[in-house]
C-alpha cells in the first residue's frame, strides 16, 4: 500500500463521491452497486469500472467484509516496550520472529516499540508476552482493550 498522496488530478469529483459513498455499508442485495451508481449519475457497470480503476491506482486498498476479529474467535492485545536505542534492531528481530506479532510500529516516545499480538486463544497472549520479556530482558506492557468505540471514522476523499 502506498503511503503517499496520489498525483493531483488522479481522482475526479465523481471518483471522490464514489469513495465517500462506498465507505458506508454496502446494501446486501444482488446489485449492491446500484444505489451508489444512481447517486453519482452513472450506469451500474460504469460505477463498477470506476471502482476497479480506483483500486488499480491505489486509492482503494480493499473492497470486502470488515471483520470483528474478536467475534471470530482469537485474542488480540496491544503491547509496548521501552527499547534502549542501541538495542533497537536486535529487539526488533527477537519480537518479529514470533508469528503471533501481527503488526509492529516504532513510535516517538520512551515506549518506542508498539506491537499487536494475535493469538488463537486468550492464554496465548500472556504466554507470548512472557516469552518476549524473557528473550529481550525488557518489560512488556500489555494494553488489552477494555472497551471499543468504533463508529464515526470516514476518509473524506
Amino acid at each position: 500500500m502506498t503511503r503517499q498522496a496520489l498525483p493531483p488530478g488522479t481522482l475526479d469529483d465523481t471518483d471522490r463521491q464514489l469513495l465517500n459513498l462506498l465507505q458506508e455499508p454496502l446494501p446486501l442485495t444482488a446489485h449492491p452497486f446500484a444505489a451508489a451508481a444512481a447517486a453519482t449519475g452513472l450506469a451500474e457497470d460504469e460505477a463498477v469500472a470506476r471502482v476497479a480503476r480506483l483500486r488499480e491506482v491505489g486509492a482503494i486498498t480493499r473492497f470486502g467484509p470488515f471483520l470483528d476479529a474478536a467475534a471470530m474467535g482469537g485474542a488480540f492485545c496491544l503491547c509496548a516496550m521501552a527499547v534502549p536505542p542501541g538495542r533497537f534492531d536486535e529487539v526488533v528481530t527477537l519480537v518479529n520472529a514470533h508469528p503471533e506479532v501481527a503488526h509492529n510500529y516504532e513510535r516517538q516516545h520512551r515506549l518506542n516499540m508498539w506491537f499487536v499480538l494475535a493469538c488463537e486463544r486468550p492464554e496465548g497472549i500472556a504466554r507470548t508476552a512472557a516469552r518476549i520479556g524473557k528473550e529481550t530482558g525488557l518489560k512488556v506492557h500489555l494494553f488489552p482493550k477494555l472497551k471499543e468505540f468504533f463508529i464515526g471514522f470516514r476518509v473524506v476523499a
Partner: peptide
C-alpha cells in the same frame, strides 16, 4: 449468510477501504 454475519457483528460491514494516504490523509 453475510446478512446473518453482519447482524451478529462478526462482519462489521461490507465496504470499500480507501487508502487514506492516497487521498491525502498522510
Amino acid at each position: 449468510r453475510f446478512a446473518a454475519l453482519q447482524a451478529a457483528g462478526i462482519v462489521r460491514r461490507i465496504a470499500v477501504a480507501p487508502n487514506h494516504y492516497a487521498v491525502g490523509m498522510v
